[in-house]
Design a protein around this nucleic acid. Structure first.
Lengths: 164, 164
DNA sequence: CCGAAAAGGTTGCATATTGCAACCGTCTTT
DNA sequence: AAAGACGGTTGCAATATGCAACCTTTTCGG
């Protein structure tokens, strides 16, 4: 497999790598969640090169994560907004922020994710069963879904053996 | 800001971009969670170039996400294992898998994350308050933590204004 | 104890991606 | 009509990536 055909891959993580595994994309999403919508604002907040910003926004739009709207009030301005798909990345972004704040910042904790109303810190992100029980890496396994190809299914089967 | 000083940045998402926002890293972590430990196995499972694999493993080790051990039984083999920090990325990986399976695979759902015992699908990842209430993007805000620099704090303050 | 093979890399070179600065086209305000 | 704001694109230099070949250490078979 090579980056050229990640998007055609059967693995969701490979596909998401094609999108998020490129520089700037996580930061663009963070900015979007912080309320940034305009080309020049993304550029100024992040210091990203304009051609790269242009490229990334196109990819995010193509992937259905953001939508491009021309403003009705001022025909010069274009707004990039998170779609439903984009907003659903919220738990992942929070999880990354929590993780990086804990493990990548030598305990300095520059950022806290808090409830808007109370200002209380939110809970650490956890994988849960449908009944609400917290699950760790050892409690779950990957299973082929309806759209899995044989190689993928075989890969997951091998992983289960390796873990046992 | 440029990729060269992301790691020095005060923003956890910027730091995590430096690590995960590079090709292959998410896939390496997926493989690690699937039980892969050895250099040649990562190479074979992913088809990654050996020099890039070498580079990424070094970075993951340097970041404290993986540990490099020489095997006691066979002195030729080296094992790369997730550290505690690495294992705590589990919810994020699951969240990415769920999200990509839903939004990036045209409904084909190649992968399911299920409880090992029962085979039942796990719940969609959610941000929760300490009391267990589910929180959406509008229910939380970012707040400067103890280690925040003035620019970061000012940035979060501006975001709150923009959202209101 | 010697040669072959396995494991885990490193190196050199061609190609692709990125960053920077300058330029362009459209819409708005004066 | 001119000037400025906004959202890009283009060309070029620097950097990162992929591929194949090579190197080093450890083990195994005779």
């Amino acid at each position: 497999m090579s980056p050229t055909n990640w998007l055609e891959s059967n693995c969701p993580i490979a596909r998401v790598t094609d999108l998020l595994g490129e520089g700037w994309v996580l930061l663009l999403l963070r900015e979007a969640f912080l309320g940034t919508r305009r080309f020049n604002d993304f550029e100024r907040e992040l210091g990203i090169a304009r051609n790269i910003l242009s490229d990334r926004l196109k990819k995010l739009v193509a992937a259905g994560v953001m939508e491009r709207h021309r403003s009705a009030e001022d025909g010069r301005v274009v707004e990039y907004r998170l779609t439903q798909a984009g907003r659903e990345l919220f738990p992942v972004l929070v999880g990354l922020g929590q993780w990086a704040g804990t493990w990548l910042c030598e305990g300095s904790q520059p950022m806290r994710v808090v409830e808007r109303e109370s200002g209380r810190e939110v809970a650490p992100l956890q994988v849960r069963s449908l009944s609400g029980r917290a699950l760790g890496p050892g409690d779950v396994r990957l299973a082929p879904g309806p759209g899995a190809d044989p190689a993928t299914a075989e890969r997951y089967a091998r992983a289960i053996e390796a873990a046992s």
